[in-house]
Amino acid sequence: MGNVYESKKLTGLSEKIFLDRYALKNADTSHAKVGDTVLVLTKDDPKFPAKEVGEIISREGNTVKVRTRSGETVESAVEKLTLNMEKTPEEMWDRLAGAMASVEKTAEKRQEWTEKFRYILNDWKLVPGGRIAAGADASDELTLFNCYVIPSPKDSRGGIMNTLTEMTEIMSRGGGVGINLSSLRPRRSVVKGVNGSSSGAVSWGGLFSYTTGLIEQGGSRRGALMLMINDWHPDLEDFITVKSTMGQITNANLSVCVSNGFMKAVKEDLEWELVFPDTTDPEYNELWDGNLDAWKKLGKAVKPYRTVRARDVWHSIIESAWKSAEPGVVFLEYYNQMSNSWYFNPIICTNPCGKVA
Rank of each mutant, 00 (worst) to 15 (best):
G218I: 04
S341W: 11
Y22L: 09
N195R: 12
I170K: 10
G35A: 05
N146D: 12
I150W: 06
L274K: 07
H31C: 09
E108C: 08
P304G: 01
V127I: 14
K300E: 02
N162E: 12
V258P: 02
R69A: 14
E333W: 06
H233Y: 06
L13T: 15
G98D: 11
F208R: 02
G176R: 00
A252W: 01
K303S: 08
L184W: 08
I240Q: 00
D281A: 03
T279C: 05
L126K: 13
Y22M: 07
G219I: 07
K323G: 13
Y343C: 08
E72Y: 15
L287K: 10
K300C: 02
G218V: 05
G2Q: 14
A321W: 07
T245W: 00
E90D: 13
Y305P: 00
K87W: 10
L126H: 15
S152A: 11
S197I: 15
V149W: 01
V191I: 15
G175T: 11
P304E: 03
T163I: 03
V266I: 10
N345M: 12
L83K: 05
D231I: 00
E273W: 05
L126I: 13
E268Q: 15
I348E: 07
D123Q: 10
S172D: 14
N351W: 02
Y334I: 15
N345V: 14
Q111C: 09
N26K: 06
